[in-house]
Design a protein around this nucleic acid. Sequence first.
DNA 1: GTCTATAGGGCGATAGAC
DNA 2: GTCTATCGCCCTATAGAC
Lengths: 192, 192
Amino acid sequence: MGRWQPGARGRLARAALELYAERGYEQTTVADIALRAGVTERTFFRHFADKREVLFDGSTALQAAIVGAVASAPDSMPPIEIASAAMITGSALLGDRDHARRRAAVIAANPSLRERELLKLAALGAAVAAALRERGIGEPTAALAAETGVTVFKIGFETWIADHNSGRAAPGDLAGCIRRAADRLKALAAEI
Amino acid sequence: MGRWQPGARGRLARAALELYAERGYEQTTVADIALRAGVTERTFFRHFADKREVLFDGSTALQAAIVGAVASAPDSMPPIEIASAAMITGSALLGDRDHARRRAAVIAANPSLRERELLKLAALGAAVAAALRERGIGEPTAALAAETGVTVFKIGFETWIADHNSGRAAPGDLAGCIRRAADRLKALAAEI
DNA sequence: GTCTATAGGGCGATAGAC
DNA sequence: GTCTATCGCCCTATAGAC
């Protein structure tokens, strides 16, 4: 047995979400999080760049999945369709709606956490735009399609976690919510 | 002569932009800004909530103008059109392209300033969505139209400041850039 | 792991404007 | 007199440097 237990990163992420929910983000110190996770304050900063980043651990994997889906979309698809479909593909990584809800509530309660989330979404948009350009789509088309895809993802995600039905009757799957948001947007654009 | 000169707020905002451009955001302390503006560090924090906020002093006025334009749009306009037109109306407040360029360069160079800008844009989107709901437009249509308007504003703004022509031949007006972005998006949506 | 600079909030005192 | 902007000194937590 070593001096420390493995899985410090996961314990820190879990402890942070719990504490932010229990007593609020500002009222939680990094020392509190480290204490609950059984490590030192210094260890926290070796795993996470700052106090906000600990809530966005999975974002890299999500972005990679979405970018991959953009790259492997069929050639015949129009840009906006590629972006929206990639969002739906990537959304499969976000299965646990209760966890997503708890996390979203914590983020919504604090402006500086909202800022970080928006930065992640902007980074996602930039990565999708780059992947579209890689397919030969020019600017500003690539940027517009990518931003629109992010919008559709965001609205779909919001309706997913806001959905009151948690039972089996209306499973409320994220993919369906995103697709409905995309359809709405298409209808809106058509009526101009 | 009194103990203090009036206009501390404006001097602080100007000093901050200069210093962030000269030596970088992270390399500038609030004490530096206060010194150049001829006030104390403490005074800075009475005018601005934090070190980033000093660059976004005009955002409230811009948002108010855009929300006002949404409220006074003709009844016959479709939601996305209302949002885009309101962005064009509000954009009249951003006349000085050189200043916009300098400010944008500073923001682009630093992630935490980018975060704050994204938060301002998200707040704008939320305000526009609320103004659309006020007109009887339901969700998620209001949110989608508002987000799309913000996207069009953002892309239009980027092309405006990226435009190499600063002479009279191609005046590069912001309103035109936003309108072109909106037209592009309409064309993209149509081809789905 | 220790040491330190900076952000940013709290509070009371003070000096102007009105 | 009131109201508000400024100052100065306290404090703690973050986050980077060593």
